[in-house]
Design a binder for these strands. Structure first.
Lengths: 334, 334
DNA sequence: AACCAATAACAAAACGATTTGCATAAGCAG
DNA sequence: CTGCTTATGCAAATCGTTTTGTTATTGGTT
């Protein structure tokens, strides 16, 4: 025999299921003595209301999901500790404090896979233009909010990553610390953070009067691809003495390339990246990066999503990134 | 008008819901032409079967949960990057590849909180004796497997963390690298990993013939508590030249204490910890630790849980920890 | 022409709760 | 004794599927 149901309890108590239901939900008055008895019997039987049945009735699952459209190589990475997991931890806390569970959706799920699960809403991390997951959930009328805007979709509620501001912080820092020919390497996909980085970079180069070198690389190529690309870049353009590489996996590759070429960091080449994760911290030398305040962003995203589910508009202010200067870009005196 | 239901589709197609259901599930034959038409209409209406309704019918939610009974201070930690998240990432992948979603349950949930959500099973990380979460899920007849055995509960399927073996590895290493008076600091809770560490440590001290110094500390006290405790320990027992501190937050505290006292690491004091996470890697000096092969354990746990849900016994072999020697304990030549 | 098997679709009963509208009984004022 | 509340509890509909048992309809055999 499986788990006891409400009617098992009703039967055992000699009452109707209605009364038992009311005794549990408190939506209507039931005689205190009866309620007491019902609870005792339920306890004894080990009865607990089925959440699935409640969900069916109420139309709410009490579950939200967290997904990333980034390729696995970047999103999870070899050490599995990254951006996404940092957000996941905070989001789980934030959701849970509101009596909501958080489901993890690993990178690049098959649509068939996703259909099986019911969420009240989804937080999507760093979506790209025409993101397939956005399409998927919109088709299903599942509310979506994103961390990082969906390009050209101002209508989708989003937590701003302030990529323009962050990029500016990093470029200014590199410049102030003596880099005069700065190159940029971003992911090739059309995510807001990359788009903004390229835009701000172009502006910056124009303002400071150096000739821009902006490279794109497929994110799935990971560290190895970046190493190869940067090796060529540095060989072809020996004048480059600063490198902005927002994708941290790429930054690791860039460091490796510089080492291979015998370029000292930051002596001959300054490097900065975006996400201050394991890679930035453990790099030799450690990489200048941004504190994106991910845990606050995650909390804000949860709040925004829940507001969106409720139909409330809701604007959540979030912090702007701050600079974490490290050895990879500290000023050379020469 | 809410989301379209199966009967909306049936109505639009002039068919019965039965036929539509079969057209989707393929459990019975429906005329290819009709099926085609049904799919077209469903597509147009934006219909997708409600997973909640399917769950109610099938009795399966297709969701498992991951929970830890560790206090937040240890489990999530300041950086939110730890043990648990590393397991979470791998478990999510493993679950997803089997068409199952993984729900994150943050540390120390309220029981009321848990009731709302329906899982087919739960993976519990490092439970302690009489763990409240174990009790909770057992009362609900929700299948549970653990990573790290539940003390005195051989009946609960578990993925072995091989704490005895790991402890022995670390102790042998410390000894071989010159530590002769080794103290032990574990969490005060009764988790298998602590219990085994204490047991093996006692054996080891007896065998090697040094006088054991085994300290306990409430896990919630975190790094600060450990620093204070270790400061006293080192002051009272200047002969101690090795320290085994499995809880990485405590290990950070121990390093801080040693530095405050002006003890050089590893010159005057060798330190080793268990989990090779951010703390161990970023510590100065970096800490000798164990590679617990968490991602393999997580996968094994998922497999074990699913087997358990199916009612199959199933034994999953898992790897034994391996040593990651670092500067904090490298042999001094003196 | 009668019979049987296969095909295509349907009606209705689950799954386990919540919710609404009623029914019965008791208490009390007039 | 009638009428009106208040206190209890129940029956039945509902949520959106899946599944089982059945009914027509067809085509092929003898």
């Amino acid at each position: 025999m499986g788990k006891p149901t409400i009617s098992d309890v009703a039967k055992a108590a000699g009452l109707s299921v209605t009364t038992v239901s009311h005794a549990f939900s408190g939506r209507r008055h039931v005689d205190p003595a009866t309620r007491e008895r019902i609870h005792a019997i339920a306890q004894e039987l080990g009865y607990h209301p089925s959440s699935v049945a409640q969900q069916l009735r109420s139309g709410r699952t009490g579950t939200i999901a967290l997904a990333s459209s980034m390729p696995f190589a970047v999103a999870a990475g070899p050490s599995r500790l990254g951006f996404l997991m940092e957000i996941a931890a905070s989001a789980a806390m934030a959701a849970f404090s509101r009596d909501i569970a958080l489901c993890l959706i690993p990178p690049q799920p098959s649509p068939a896979n996703l259909n099986q699960m019911g969420f009240d809403g989804v937080i999507l991390v760093e979506p790209e233009r025409d993101d397939p997951l956005v399409r998927h959930f919109e088709a299903r009328r599942t509310p979506v909010v994103t961390i990082g805007k969906v390009p050209e979709r101002e209508d989708i509620p989003a937590i701003d990553l302030y990529s323009a501001e962050g990029t500016r912080l990093l470029l200014d820092h590199l410049w102030e610390n003596g880099a005069r020919q700065i190159a940029l390497l971003t992911g090739a996909s059309e995510r807001t953070s990359h788009l903004e980085a390229r835009r701000i970079y172009a502006e910056f180069a124009a303002t400071q009067g150096f000739s821009p070198q902006a490279l794109l690389l497929d994110e799935a190529k990971g560290e190895g691809g970046a190493k190869e690309l940067v090796t060529h870049l540095l060989r072809d353009h020996p004048e480059i003495n600063g490198l902005l590489v927002p994708v941290d996996a790429f930054a690791s590759g860039a460091v490796a390339a510089a080492k291979d070429l015998g370029k000292s960091i930051p002596g001959e080449l300054s490097i900065a990246t975006r996400y201050d994760g394991l890679r930035a911290k453990l790099s030799e030398p450690p990489l200048t990066a941004l504190d994106l305040h991910l845990s606050q962003l995650a909390e804000a995203a949860v709040a925004l999503l829940l507001a969106h589910i409720e139909g409330a508009p809701g604007v959540t202010p979030v912090p702007v990134p701050s600079l974490v200067p490290r050895r990879s870009s500290l000023r050379r005196e020469g």
